[in-house]
Computed example of a mutant assay.
Amino acid sequence: MTSKSYYAPSGGHPPQTQLLTDRAVFTEAYAVIPKGTMRDIVTSFLPFWDKTRLWVLSRPLSGFAESFSQYIMEVQPGGGSQKPEPNGRAEGVLFVVEGSMNVIIEGIPHPMEEGGYAYLPAGCNWTLTNESSAPVRFHWVRKAYEAVEGLEKPEAFVRNEKDVAPNPMPGTDGKWATTRFVEPDDLRHDMHVNIVTLEPGAVIPFAETHVMEHGLYVLEGKAVYRLNQDWVEVEAGDYMWLRAFCPQACYAGGPGRFRYLLYKDVNRHMKLL
């Protein structure tokens, strides 16, 4: 992995001469949020975060995807938070797409740079600061942890994706692979945030139709994605938000590899109303 491998938004504002036509769409089964929509005018701020703004990519929405939220955080030099997570039930994953930062978890500092991944269990004590001279941009995925009697809560950990070997999908000659930060059969975890890589021309060769909700942020490359009944072109910086049972498949378009950060909820009984 080379530096600047991942797309990160920087905001700004389009000129008055720009056409309004874009690829943004919100349907009953999926949403596509193109990178061009992540402008200054749609940023937000959070309590107890200094020199920080964010783009909200997804949030629990009744009748759509309900299990998670996902932000792109932008923290300026000297910024950060000593009280980042106000919800004691919320677990989180951080993934750095640009710059560097220092995360202190239960008193232990963890320097993180591009490709850095942190899992933060519900109720853990953590802080975050940008001690560099440039902005740091990272994804923050949050979910209310579903504890199960008899299962221990998972512990915090910090890794970098360059140190995690991808798992090739069977029968693909390594052209479709998943970088997993948590073992799929570790039942302590009720969500996975992985990285999926498809080489040019590789495909997801069937319409996946399943109960897991998804957030997919394209880190690099381009592809044609099948979402429900539609074929949609996506590229680095775009975000796809899928409700449960939305059919999905894709062709990687090249010339380089197609990679995305993928959220899904796993390993728990279905809630009965």
Rank of each mutant, 00 (worst) to 15 (best):
M1L: 13
S3P: 15
S3W: 15
A8E: 08
P9C: 01
G11I: 04
H13E: 14
T17L: 07
Q18N: 12
L20D: 12
D22Q: 14
A24K: 15
T27Q: 10
A29Y: 02
A29E: 12
A29G: 08
A31N: 00
I33Y: 10
M38K: 09
R39D: 10
R39W: 11
D40C: 09
I41M: 13
F45H: 13
W49M: 06
D50I: 03
R53Y: 04
L54W: 05
L54T: 09
V56Y: 14
V56P: 14
L57H: 07
L61S: 13
G63V: 03
E66A: 11
S67Y: 04
S67T: 13
F68W: 02
E74F: 09
Q76H: 04
G78I: 02
G80I: 09
S81Y: 05
K83D: 14
P84L: 15
E85V: 13
E85N: 14
N87T: 00
N87K: 04
N87S: 15
R89T: 15
A90T: 01
G92D: 07
G92Y: 11
L94F: 05
F95V: 08
F95S: 01
V96C: 05
V96Q: 10
V97E: 06
V97C: 02
E98Q: 04
E98M: 10
E98F: 02
M101E: 03
V103F: 03
I105Y: 10
I105T: 01
G107W: 14
I108T: 11
P109N: 05
P109Y: 03
M112F: 04
Y117T: 05
Y119V: 01
Y119N: 01
Y119C: 04
L120E: 08
A122N: 05
G123V: 00
T127H: 11
T127K: 13
R137E: 11
V141C: 08
R142L: 09
R142P: 08
R142Q: 12
K143D: 10
Y145I: 04
E146G: 12
A147H: 11
L151S: 05
K153S: 12
K153M: 04
E155Q: 12
N160A: 07
K162A: 15
A165R: 14
N167E: 15
M169A: 11
P170Y: 13
T172P: 11
K175L: 02
T178W: 14
T179M: 09
F181A: 00
L187Q: 01
H192Q: 07
V193W: 09
N194P: 00
V196Q: 13
V196H: 12
V196L: 02
E199T: 04
P200F: 06
A202M: 05
A202Y: 01
V203A: 07
I204A: 13
I204H: 12
P205E: 02
F206P: 00
A207G: 14
V211A: 03
M212V: 00
M212E: 12
G221V: 11
A223L: 02
L227F: 03
W231T: 07
V232G: 12
E235V: 01
A236C: 01
G237P: 11
G237Q: 00
D238M: 03
D238G: 03
W241E: 02
R243I: 06
R243M: 06
F245R: 11
F245S: 05
P247E: 07
A249S: 10
A249L: 09
C250N: 15
R257L: 06
R259F: 08
Y260C: 01
L261F: 03
L262Y: 07
K264S: 01
D265V: 12
M270C: 10
K271Y: 15
L272N: 09
L273C: 11
